[in-house]
Amino acid sequence: MKVLQGFDYRRGTSIVHKMDPRAKLVYLILFSSLAVYFLSPYLLIFLFLSSVPMVALARIGGKWSQSIKGSAYFIVIIFVINFAVNLIQQLPLVDALTLSIAMSFRFVVLISIFSSYFLTTSPEDLTQSMVQLKVPYDYALTFNMAMRFVPTLSKEAQIIMDAQKSRGLEMEKGSFIQKIRNYIPVLVPLIVSSFRRAELVADAMESRAFGATKKRTSLYTLRLGDVDYAFLCIVVTSFAALLVSSLLIGFR
């Protein structure tokens, strides 16, 4: 669950926090595409290092490193599965190893990029940037609310687990199938209360005239500033440079 720490937005005053979320979104899309395109561990390490200055500027090192530590489990799984599959496909040992390391690094790079985006972008800004990018408001809001309720749900799951343990439920007891069944008393209340809450939220929104007019106005609109343009320049140029040189040399 530590991974989720890396997506838990906290208000901040750094230059990265103040940047236009659309500029950061461009960075997110371009650099994660590169991470998916590259196969060499060296290039992926380079991508990883390139995300570090942003983390340092935003002073989110603590949560960012927690999200990477929290994903250690997945990293190991990705490595093992890739290595096994490569060996089965009878790749030479060195190639199999490099490729598996690269795949694990790809995951680290993606976690790093996504977590530095979500840690520095408030859910409201995210919604607003989606709206200004012409995503229909209903979809933008749904996305925003889904993100907003993740921590609430995880807190609630903990309370429910405590309540059922107090009635003698032992989650870790029994065979594999039994262990899965043990989650029913936790999942059912969690789902039911989510529906209850959804209904409540919907009622509360309608009481405040949600959907009353076709065209919504915004209190704040996002505007690209000098910093954003500079950042976009750096991002787009380095993306183009990396991609073009990789294509020219034929090394990825």
Binding site: E156, I159, V192, S193
Partner: peptide, 13 residues
């Protein structure tokens, strides 16, 4: 020790 939680929706299933 029987502990009854505040919100019944957290335990009814």
């Amino acid at each position: 020790v029987g502990l009854v939680f505040q919100n019944p929706d957290h335990q009814l299933f």
